[in-house]
Design a protein around this nucleic acid. Structure first.
Length: 167
DNA sequence: GGCATGATTGTTGGA
DNA sequence: TCCAACAATCATGCC
């Protein structure tokens, strides 16, 4: 969740969440958050509250990087277990049992993904700004001109992403 | 058929 | 500083 290191959220682990059993967190606050999350996604999908589909996806945390590998292992060891909840639980427990040294490579990968995300976000933000500028100038411009520029900027961004992938 | 749900931790972004 | 949202995964159930 939003606990442990990073930013100032460490406090929470020591207070709220640490005081509550994992079960409580799951069926309580977290669940509510998930429901809110899902409903917001739903809203987004339904049309209102539309989110930018071009917005870069958030980078996976170290835990999620670990989970990607863990899923493969878990599937091999438990080919009959398909439930994502089981993988999540097992992954969570395994993650906690890992030493700092064992987590290190996953954190390194996560850090790399994060820096890539920051680059992409930068480009995305610039694009947003330029689009806002475009909107201001829209009355002066023909729509075809705008579309041309937009296409170019999108292409640039896609190329950037591919470059990052190569890296 | 298509979408929501569940279960996990870490990080981000907004208030 | 705190909290909600979101990131991946996919079988299952519901409408």
């Amino acid at each position: 969740m939003k606990v442990s290191k990073g930013k100032g959220t460490l406090v929470k682990k020591d207070t709220k969440e640490a005081l509550k059993p994992a079960e409580d967190r799951r069926i309580g606050k977290r669940k509510a958050a998930i429901k809110a999350d899902k409903s917001s996604k739903q809203k987004a999908k339904k049309g209102k509250l539309v989110k930018d589909p071009n917005k870069p996806k958030r980078p996976p945390s170290a835990f999620f990087v670990f989970l990607e590998e863990f899923r493969k292992t878990f599937k091999k060891e438990n080919p009959t277990v398909k439930a994502v909840s089981a993988v999540g639980k097992a992954g969570g427990e395994k993650w906690k049992s890992l030493s700092e040294a064992e987590k290190a490579p996953y954190e390194a990968k996560a850090a790399k993904r994060k820096s890539e995300y920051e680059k992409v976000m930068n480009a995305y933000n610039k694009k947003q700004e330029s689009m806002a500028d475009d909107a201001d100038e829209e009355s002066d411009r023909s729509k075809s001109e705008i579309n041309d520029e937009d296409d170019e900027s999108v292409q640039d961004e896609e190329e950037d992403e591919e470059d990052e992938d190569d890296d």
